[in-house]
Amino acid sequence: MKLFSNIFTSLEQGLQYSTMKQNAISDNIANVDTPNYKAKSVSFQDTLQKATKELDGLRTDPRHFEIKAKTQNPFIQARSNYLYNNNGNSVDMDKEMTDLAKNQIYYNALVERLNGKFSSLQSVIKGGQ
């Protein structure tokens, strides 16, 4: 028996992604003056696009297209094709601060949604009071 619905799993995965992104942004900001440091990014969009191209679908007719499944998690990769400083550093401080703000908004939205779900459960447990 599953205690929580799939929404809790999805929210948890979203929070894990946001945490991974926060760590990458923090590393980039901390190393803004480190020579030859390559900025990190969490590539969820690329992973999502690859995964949606390779979904496993049910074929009810032989004329349907075959779709294969391949699940991937977000991963951190270095952005080495940009140089913003003469010392070989690829950290763009404006981009990092923008990403930091967007990630914070995303994280807060997930936490609010999770709190709402737990409040609903608490209300149900108390009998709607």
Rank of each mutant, 00 (worst) to 15 (best):
Lys70Trp: 06
Gln104Met: 12
Leu83Gln: 14
Gln49Tyr: 05
Asn31Ala: 07
Leu58Pro: 02
Ser90Ala: 01
Asn115His: 07
Gly14Asp: 00
Pro62Ser: 06
Gly116Met: 13
Val32Trp: 02
Ser90Lys: 00
Leu11Asn: 03
Arg59His: 05
Val42Leu: 02
Phe8Asp: 10
Asp92Leu: 06
Ala109Asp: 04
Asn108Lys: 06
Asn86Val: 13
Lys68His: 12
Leu48Thr: 04
Lys21Thr: 11
Leu83Asn: 11
Leu55Trp: 04
Asn87His: 05
Glu54Pro: 02
Thr34Trp: 06
Gln77Asn: 10
Gln72Asp: 12
Asp46Trp: 02
Ser80Asp: 13
Asn89Leu: 03
Ile67Met: 07
Thr9Cys: 07
Leu48Ile: 04
Ser43Pro: 06
Asn28Phe: 05
Lys40Gln: 15
Arg113Ser: 12
Asn81Ser: 10
Arg63Glu: 11
Leu11Gln: 06
Asn89Arg: 05
Asp33Val: 00
Ile25Phe: 00
Asp99Pro: 00
Lys53Met: 06
Lys38Gly: 05
Arg63His: 11
Asp46Pro: 04
Leu83Phe: 11
Lys21Asp: 03
Thr60Ser: 06
Gln13Trp: 08
Ile76Ser: 08
Arg113Pro: 04
Lys95Tyr: 05
Asp46Val: 02
Asp33Asn: 15
Arg113Trp: 07
Ile76Gly: 02
Gln77Glu: 15
Gly127Thr: 09
Val91Cys: 03
Gln13Asn: 13
Gln122Glu: 15
Ser5Tyr: 02
Ala24Leu: 04
Asp99Thr: 04
Lys95Gly: 12
Thr52Cys: 05
Ser90Arg: 01
Asn6Trp: 02
Gly127Phe: 11
Thr9Phe: 09
Ala24Asn: 04
Lys2Phe: 11
Lys126Cys: 03
Lys21His: 12
Phe65Glu: 12
Arg59Lys: 13
Val91Gln: 00
Lys21Arg: 15
Val111His: 11
Ser18Ala: 15
Ser123Ile: 09
Leu48Asn: 05
Gln22Thr: 03
Tyr82Ala: 10
Gly128Asn: 12
Lys126Ser: 13
Lys117Thr: 06
Ala39Ser: 14
Thr34Met: 04
Lys53Ala: 08
Glu96Cys: 04
Gly88Val: 10
Ser119His: 03
Glu54Leu: 07
Val124Glu: 09
Ala30Met: 07
Arg79Ser: 09
Ile125Lys: 14
Leu110Val: 06
Tyr107Cys: 01
Asn115Ala: 03
Val32Asp: 03
Ser18Glu: 05
Tyr82Arg: 14
Leu114His: 11
Ala109Thr: 10
Asn115Ile: 08
Gln104Thr: 15
Met1Gly: 10
Lys38Ala: 08
Ile105Pro: 01
Ser18Lys: 04
Tyr37Val: 01
Asp46Lys: 13
Ile125Leu: 15
Phe44Met: 03
Met97Gly: 01
Gly57Phe: 12
Asn85Trp: 01
Ala101Trp: 05
Ile67Tyr: 08
Ile25Val: 08
Leu55Pro: 08
Asp99Lys: 05
Lys126Thr: 07
Asp61Leu: 02
Ala78Glu: 15
Gly127His: 07
Lys68Ile: 13
Val42Thr: 06
Thr19Asp: 07
Phe44Pro: 01
Lys2Val: 15
Leu58Cys: 05
Arg63Thr: 13
Asp33Lys: 12
Leu110Met: 14
Thr9Lys: 14
